[in-house]
Design a protein around this nucleic acid. Sequence first.
DNA 1: AAATGAATTTAGCCTATGCTAAACATTTAG
DNA 2: CTAAATGTTTAGCATAGGCTAAATTCATTT
Lengths: 222, 222
Amino acid sequence: MLSEAVQDYLKAIYKLSRAPETGRMVSTTLIAERMGVSAASATNMIKRLAEMNILEHRPYQGVELTPSGIHMALEIVRHHRLLELYLRQALGYDWDAVDAEADRLEHAISEDFEDRIDEALGFPTVGAHGEPIPTKEGNIAETDYARLSELTAGQRACIRQVSDRDPELLRYLDQHGLVLGTEIRIAEKAPFSGPMRLDVGASGEQHIGLEVAEAIYVDVLE
Amino acid sequence: MLSEAVQDYLKAIYKLSRAPETGRMVSTTLIAERMGVSAASATNMIKRLAEMNILEHRPYQGVELTPSGIHMALEIVRHHRLLELYLRQALGYDWDAVDAEADRLEHAISEDFEDRIDEALGFPTVGAHGEPIPTKEGNIAETDYARLSELTAGQRACIRQVSDRDPELLRYLDQHGLVLGTEIRIAEKAPFSGPMRLDVGASGEQHIGLEVAEAIYVDVLE
DNA sequence: AAATGAATTTAGCCTATGCTAAACATTTAG
DNA sequence: CTAAATGTTTAGCATAGGCTAAATTCATTT
């Protein structure tokens, strides 16, 4: 069994390695920041993770998950996303609160528990923020969403996923009707991915900033 | 926040101090056994718990929880019992499986989570095995049940609580219809609390041994 | 009262995980 | 192309828990 700390590092590294900004190779500093520990502590743990064949460590370069490390990470992510969805659907948690609670619980649940909530949810394929849920076998659907910030005036799109990084941002989105499934149309956009004006579903017109537009992933409608 | 280890010790000590066999003063060895650690490790932790004002340690004598220690223990017990009941009622866990899963989860849940399952269950006052659930304020209902083993031939009784110590025993009870609320009548009993013959609710006659009879707590019916 | 045996504590060690300060490597700027 | 800035690792230390072996205390029995 992987310790909680190891699981937490693994999940963080997996997420960083999938972020479009970073790329597969993840730096020590980034990991340390994300985990809220010193760089020295991160190096320390990285060496242990390399020892366990979870990742490869090129000193001074960064870290890359092994296939087996990715597989382990996907199990953790599956637990997390199923829990988030369960908290939302079965216990009425708000969009922005599920991540923190799932972080606490994810280390504690058994396979049996996972199977039961999976069934109670009807074997869902996407999580509370639209992220794909890895299968029990460790497969995860590839998504091909555009960032809202990349669209241009006149385009229409449907919200498919949102970043769960910032609870405050999630509250903002919720209050402005920018939830999964909402259809939007770009009414006007400043050059260089600046702020944009949107027509949002039934709820009317919104102005959003770049940060918000980058946290929203959409299917572009023809 | 108390560490998991501290919480586990505290819960174990609380339970031991409530067991009729032991009495308020609990010995190091008993704690070590229950926790599955060496006596030296138990001593070690006991000193830390005393440091934290959770209990008083009379060296070579034993240990007694302070009022504040009891209060903390009751919070932990509340979490545990609410979780057990939730697992049973909401997720369909078997009687004998809830304890182990609740042990895993109880360290991980927030107050918010507790409140939500409390509400989802309709603010229950007894747990999955009939134990009283402490209130949020740290009060616990005193119960005054008899052990089935203490009854004599001819008496009738209603099952109110069962010991959750042994999952196998719980399976046995379940299979034989000896569940909460069942009415029984002692048909015949060997002297000195030996095995007994019972008429059990609608499901007919049972023979049970002493160990089983001691794990069942009942209200005696006039 | 002394001796034996059981229970308890102490001493000393181990691992996981964190930290700071110092050393080392890489990148960037002058 | 060297020097400063930045990023990374090493060294040494801390804390929480666990362990074994040895020492100590208590209880019991002669």
